[in-house]
Nucleic acid binder design. Structure first.
Lengths: 339, 339
DNA sequence: GAGTATTTCGGCAACGATTACGTGAAATTT
DNA sequence: AAATTTCACGTAATCGTTGCCGAAATACTC
C-alpha cells in the first residue's frame, strides 16, 4: 500500500523538478507541451491529488466554510443547511458543520475550532440562549467573515439573512380574524426567545390593527422544548378555562400538533370549533388531519442567500448586506370553517 | 486589524526562539517554568490559536472526518448526522458534511474533495443508485478509512452499521397478521433500491411463515421520490381494485401518509377498515391521526456507532467491525382494530 | 577543580505545495 | 556572427508547525 502520491513522486519518476510538475498541473505557461502531457499522464497514473492542507497553507486560502446551527434534525435548519451546501458545492467549497444544541459554550468551542481550521467564512444561526451575543463578539474578534441566519443581532452592521417573523405572525392572525374567529389565543415559545417575541409582536399588532383587544389570559409561554407536549398541556388548559378561545395561533408546528391532540380529547372539531395555525411549514403540517395552516419559511432559499452573502463579503463587497425573507401564509384546512 | 498571531510573533515579542514557544504551548518537558508562563501569557494576550493546517501538514494527522449522506433534510439521515457529530465532538473531530442527493457522480466528487482535504476517515451512506458500488471502490483505492451506514455492500470485509430492515418488515407484517388482517398489501420503494428489497423480503417471509400467500397484485412499487404522492396514488389504485386490501405496509412513513389521504377520500376508517404501518418513525408518524404504527430506526445511535467504529479502525483495530441494529416495532393506533 | 549530568534553549530540516527569480540553451533578430 | 529574445526548466524561499540534534549554562559528583 503505497502512501499518497506527492509532486515529488511524479517529479522523480520523470526526472524533472517539483516546480515543473506543479506548473504542469496548474496550467502555467512556461512549460513544454510534451513534458506537460507526460506529467499529466503520470499524475493520472499515480492517482495524484494535491494535498489541500499544503495548498491552503501556502496560498493562504482555504476553500472551506463553517456552518453552525442549533440542531440539524430540526426540519427548518436541515433545509437551511441543504441550501448552503447546494451553493457551496457549486462554488467548490467544503462545508464544516457543527451543532450547538443551543448551548453557548458549545457554540464557542465550534467557532474556535472553525477559526483554528482556517475556515474562510462562517454561516451561523446563533444560539438564542446567548443573550448578550458574546459569541458574536468572539467571531468578530477572530476576524472571521460571517453571515447570521435567522437570529440576527440588533447590530446594524451585521450581514444577515432573516425571516419576517413578525410579518408571518401578522398574516396568520389577520387570516384568523378574517375567517371570523373572535377569541384568538397564542401559544408562544419560551420566554426571552427573540424569534418567539417577534411572532408575538406580529400577533398583537394584527389584533390591535383590527381593533381587537390583546387578552393576556389567552397567551401562554411554552417550556424550552417548545414541543407537542407544550402545545398539548397549554391548549388543554386554555380550552378548559372560562375564556375558552376559538382559535389558537402557535409559535411553531410542533406545538400546533399538541393542540390537535388536546382538541381531539376534548371532542373539539378543527376548524369548526377551534382554528389552529402553526409556523414553519414543517413536514408534519401537511400530514396532520385536518391539514395545518402554517407560515412558510423557505429554509433552503435562506441558506442559499446566506452563502451568496458570504461570497460577496469574501470578494470584498463591504456594503451592508442583509435580506429579510417575506412572510407567506399557507392556508390549509385547520383555519377555514366550512360554511 | 492585525493578521493572525503566529508562533513567530510570540517568539519575537519575547526574544525567544519559535521552537521554544512551540514547546511551551505543547507542554513539553525541557522548558523553564518561567519562560513557559511568560509564553502562555503572551499567547493568551495575542489571542494565539495554532494554525490547524500547518499542524496537520506537519504531523500528518488531520482531526477531521467526512460524512456523506444522500440528503440531510430527510429525518432519518439528519439524526444519523446528529449522532455522528455528537461523538465527533467528544473526540475533538471536525465534521465535513456533503450531500450526494443520490447522485453517484456528485458522490464521487465529494469523496474526492474529502480525500484532497485529507480527512482521517469517512462515514458514508452510499447512493443507492450506484449499483456496482463504483464509489466504494473509489474510496478504497484512495485508502481512506471508512464506515458504511445503512446501505452496506455485499462485501464481507467492509465495516458497516446497518439496520435490520428485513426484520423490521417482518415484525410489521407479523403484527398485522396477529391483529387479524387478512389481505396485507405492500407499497415498496422504487425498484432496485436495496433497502426496499430487504423490507420486501421481510414482508414476504412473514407471510409465508404464517402460511399466507404472497399476492403480487397487492404489491406496488413507488417512483424514485418515494413520497406521499406515491402512497396516495398507489393505495387509491389498490383500494379501488377487486383485491382491495385490509392492511397496507409501507416502505416508509411518507408513503403511509399518502395512504391516509387516500383512505380519507374513500371514507375508509383507519384502523377499522384499513390498517396502515409505516417505516422509520419519522416525526410525522406520531402526528398523523390516527397515530401511525411504524418501525423504529435509531438514527442517532447508528451515527454514534459508526463514529465509534471509525475510531476503532483509526487506532488500528483491524478486526471485522459491523453492527446490525435490531428492529423494533412501535405499535400505535393505525394498526389496532378497536374491538 | 576536573569531569560528568542535567536543564534549557536555539538551529535546522522537514511536511507538500507554490512561485519569484535565475539560468542555460535554442531561436530569433540585426 | 554577435546580440537579443524566447523558451523551458531548476533553485530556493515561503506558508506555520514540529521535532531532532546539539550547544550553552548550570548543577552535581568524586
Amino acid at each position: 500500500m503505497p502512501p499518497r502520491t506527492r509532486l515529488k513522486d511524479i517529479a522523480e519518476s520523470l526526472n524533472v523538478s517539483i516546480a515543473t510538475v506543479s506548473r504542469a498541473l496548474n496550467n502555467k505557461f512556461d512549460i513544454n507541451a510534451e513534458t506537460r502531457n507526460a506529467i499529466l499522464k503520470k499524475a493520472e497514473e499515480l492517482n495524484y491529488r494535491p494535498n489541500a492542507l499544503a495548498v491552503s497553507l501556502r496560498k493562504n486560502e482555504n476553500f472551506t466554510i463553517g456552518v453552525i446551527l442549533p440542531s440539524v434534525d430540526h426540519y427548518f435548519f436541515s433545509t437551511v443547511l441543504k441550501g448552503i451546501m447546494n451553493k457551496a458545492h457549486q462554488a467548490n467549497y467544503l462545508v464544516i458543520i457543527g451543532e450547538s444544541n443551543h448551548n453557548p459554550e458549545r457554540e464557542k468551542e465550534l467557532i474556535n475550532q472553525c477559526a483554528t481550521h482556517c475556515v474562510t467564512g462562517l454561516i451561523i444561526s446563533l444560539a438564542s440562549t446567548d443573550i448578550n451575543h458574546e459569541n458574536l463578539k468572539f467571531i468578530k474578534s477572530n476576524r472571521i467573515p460571517y453571515v447570521l441566519v435567522d437570529r440576527p443581532s440588533k447590530n446594524e452592521d451585521d450581514t444577515f439573512v432573516k425571516y419576517d417573523d413578525e410579518g408571518g405572525a401578522r398574516l396568520a392572525t389577520e387570516h384568523l380574524i378574517a375567517q371570523g374567529y373572535k377569541k384568538i389565543a397564542m401559544l408562544k415559545g419560551k420566554d426571552s426567545c427573540s424569534i418567539s417575541e417577534s411572532r408575538f409582536n406580529g400577533y398583537t399588532k394584527a389584533l390591535l390593527k383590527r381593533g381587537m383587544a390583546v387578552d393576556h389570559d389567552l397567551i401562554r409561554s411554552s417550556s424550552a422544548a417548545q414541543g407537542p407536549e407544550d402545545g398539548y398541556f397549554l391548549s388543554k388548559e386554555l380550552l378548559l378555562s372560562k375564556k375558552k378561545p376559538d382559535a389558537i395561533f402557535c409559535v411553531n408546528d410542533d406545538i400546533a400538533a399538541g393542540v390537535y391532540q388536546a382538541s381531539q380529547e376534548l371532542n373539539l372539531n378543527i376548524p369548526d370549533d377551534l382554528a389552529v395555525v402553526g409556523y414553519s411549514n414543517s413536514i408534519i403540517s401537511k400530514h396532520l388531519s385536518p391539514t395545518l395552516t402554517t407560515v412558510v419559511q423557505p429554509g433552503a432559499d435562506m441558506g442559499e442567500q446566506a452563502f451568496d452573502f458570504l461570497q460577496q463579503i469574501l470578494i470584498g463587497n463591504s456594503s451592508k448586506l442583509s435580506r429579510t425573507f417575506d412572510a407567506r401564509l399557507l392556508v390549509r384546512e385547520s383555519s377555514c370553517k366550512v360554511i
